[in-house]
């Protein structure tokens, strides 16, 4: 379970998160929508401790992420994150991209890591690209590799930050299919996305962020069907 309690975060003068409260139970698929600069990415990077917070608490399975003694490297093993830019490691083959962390962080043998990587890469449809360097992959393939790379650590939670936004339209579908597959397998996911159709169909709940505040959170039918927040109504009108 991910518990976010009254989290505030500023960059200099700019308050980006203005007291966020949110609990994501195991097995939930939560999508986060909202305008540019509303704090969605910042929230994700606060959850896995890439960013600090100013006040409040984020607790993952009982571990306070930003407490002093917390071993973030250990915590991050259970929190996979995939970014908008694919962040492939260009000097490693697809297989090596995926096996590196299992070997160096989890201490698995090459054979063990290879087995896991092949399984995950096959899962995302890249079983035939193991020996290829990322520069030879399309954006959609690179992004699916990044997903496999995160999954190879056997995380309990997956955080996705607009993973389709940098893709050509015709490549969006294959990546969304991968996310759908994960959701159907019961993975706990927080997906920041601009794909409203996807959010509607895959989510248990949808959260709308506006200017650092979580203005509304509801199951998709309710949030899209009968939005209460005026900013959400405006946002939805603009995106349709």
């Amino acid at each position: 379970m991910i518990e976010i309690e009254n989290v505030r975060k500023s960059f200099g003068q700019l308050e980006v998160l203005k007291g966020i409260n949110l609990t994501v139970p195991k097995g939930e698929v939560l999508t986060v929508i909202g305008g540019s600069g509303s704090g969605k990415s910042t929230l994700l990077t606060c959850i896995n401790g890439l960013e600090t917070i100013d006040s409040g608490r984020i607790v993952v399975d009982g571990t306070d992420v930003h407490a002093k003694g917390t071993d973030l490297n250990k915590l991050r093993r259970k929190l996979g994150i995939v970014f908008q830019q694919f962040n492939a490691f260009p000097h490693l083959t697809v297989l090596e991209n995926v096996t590196l962390a299992p070997r160096k962080v989890l201490g698995l043998s090459k054979a063990e890591a290879d087995a896991i990587a092949v399984k995950q890469l096959t899962h995302v449809g890249l079983g035939d690209k193991l020996k290829v360097y990322p520069s030879r992959l399309s954006g959609g393939q690179q992004q699916r590799m990044a997903i496999a790379r995160a999954l190879a650590m056997s995380p309990d939670y997956m955080l996705f930050d607009e993973v389709t936004s940098a893709l050509d339209p015709q490549l969006v579908g294959e990546v969304l299919d991968t996310l759908r597959l994960l959701a159907s397998e019961g993975m706990t996911m927080i997906c920041v996305t601009h794909e409203m159709k996807f959010a509607r169909e895959v989510s248990d709940r949808v959260a709308f962020f506006h200017k650092g505040v979580m203005a509304e959170i509801a199951p998709p039918d309710e949030l899209f069907g009968a939005p209460k927040d005026p900013d959400l109504r405006q946002f939805l009108a603009a995106t349709h």
Binding site: N73, K74, R76, Q85, N87, F89, L100, A101, M153
Partner: peptide, 11 residues
């Protein structure tokens, strides 16, 4: 972002 990606994997 390369370092961020690596750190996100627990390195």
């Amino acid at each position: 972002t390369q370092t961020r990606a690596a750190r996100s994997l627990g390195m």
